[in-house]
Amino acid sequence: MKQTAIIFLGLLLFGGTTKSQNTDPIFNGQDLSNWVPVLRSEANADTVFYVKDGIMNAGGDPFGYIRTKDSYENYELSLEWRWTGEPSNSGLLLAITGEDKVWPHCIEAQLKHKNAGDLVLMHKGAQASVQGQDYQVDPEVRWVSVANKFNPSSEKTPGEWNSYRIRFLNGTLELWINDTLQMQATNVTPTKGPIGLQSEGSHIQFRNIELIQL
């Protein structure tokens, strides 16, 4: 019994050390010092994106996003979100590439109400394969391409906290909404860049933002 307890304790310590080595604190729950705001129109970014009680807030107006200063590739990202009023649109921008603008070249994990889990490709060069079908942006048709989520919405009632888990490894992307797999894509491009959270319509909150490098 004593030996079993020692082994169990050792596993706990080893697991804790591994997580500490691989986890990147992209949001410290106190301020936005690791983030860069990008807005469509002139506005005080501090009134659009701000932290209160350990929660990151995005006002929804004007449109824009706030992104990490650092770039990431091969990771698992988890967070919680909720709408504080009438739900509308938002998203997680992955592998932001090139110029900071609204909206940038990237891969979006959709957060639009009832559509969380859709995959949105933005601008020429963004592409993915989903269930044997290739998706890419044709700028002569539209600047985005959308692959719809696999299942009916698994979002909770507006006002309740939802969980989003994203695994992005070697060009394969999985999106889990409240533990339901809503998207799995391969041959995803681009794969590396900052991560952003959108302000796009109405007030949304984010918390427990954690990234584990794979």
Rank of each mutant, 00 (worst) to 15 (best):
V48I: 15
V120W: 11
S154Q: 14
Y72K: 12
P62L: 07
H123A: 00
D138R: 06
N74C: 04
D70Q: 15
H113V: 13
P190D: 13
V102P: 01
F8Q: 12
A116S: 12
P194N: 03
P62A: 08
G196A: 13
D53E: 14
S163H: 10
S145G: 00
G196D: 07
A116T: 05
P190F: 14
N44T: 05
N44Y: 02
V146G: 03
K69Q: 15
F206S: 00
S71C: 02
F8T: 12
Y164R: 12
K149T: 09
I195K: 09
R167Q: 13
L214D: 15
Y65A: 02
L13T: 11
L111Q: 13
S154W: 09
S41A: 11
V137P: 04
W143S: 05
A185T: 06
F8E: 09
W35Y: 10
K101T: 08
D100G: 02
F206T: 00
L93C: 00
G132S: 02
A95T: 08
T47N: 10
V130D: 04
D100F: 13
F27N: 00
L79R: 04
K156H: 09
F150C: 00
L111E: 14
L121V: 02
N34H: 14
T68V: 06
V36S: 11
V38A: 03
G85D: 13
E80M: 03
G10M: 15
P190H: 10
T172S: 12
A95H: 04
L214V: 04
E200T: 02
V36L: 14
L119G: 01
F63A: 09
W103V: 00
G193F: 14
V38G: 08
K2Y: 10
L197G: 00
E86P: 00
I166M: 05
I107V: 15
E155F: 06
G64T: 04
I195Q: 05
K112N: 05
N44H: 09
Q110Y: 07
L214K: 13
T191D: 04
L214A: 14
T186A: 12
L93A: 01
V51S: 06
W81F: 15
F49R: 01
P139Y: 11
F49P: 06
V36R: 14
T18Y: 15
L211Q: 11
D46I: 04
D24F: 11
T47S: 15
S154K: 11
L9R: 09
H123D: 07
Q131T: 04
G16Q: 09
G59T: 08
W161D: 05
Y164E: 03
V141K: 15
W176D: 01
F63T: 02
S20V: 09
K124R: 08
I204M: 10
E210W: 01
I212S: 13
Q133C: 03
K69P: 03
H123W: 10
S33P: 09
T47A: 05
G64E: 06
I209Q: 03
N187E: 15
T97C: 01
A5F: 10
V137K: 05
R82D: 02
Q131F: 01
Q127T: 10
T172Q: 11
A147D: 03
S163Q: 11
E200N: 04
N208Q: 12
L77S: 04
T4Y: 15
T180A: 03
K19C: 07
F168M: 02
G117M: 09
G171A: 05
L92Y: 06
F8G: 01
W176C: 02
F49Q: 02
N44R: 06
N178R: 02
G196T: 10
Q21C: 03
N34A: 15
N162P: 01
P152I: 02
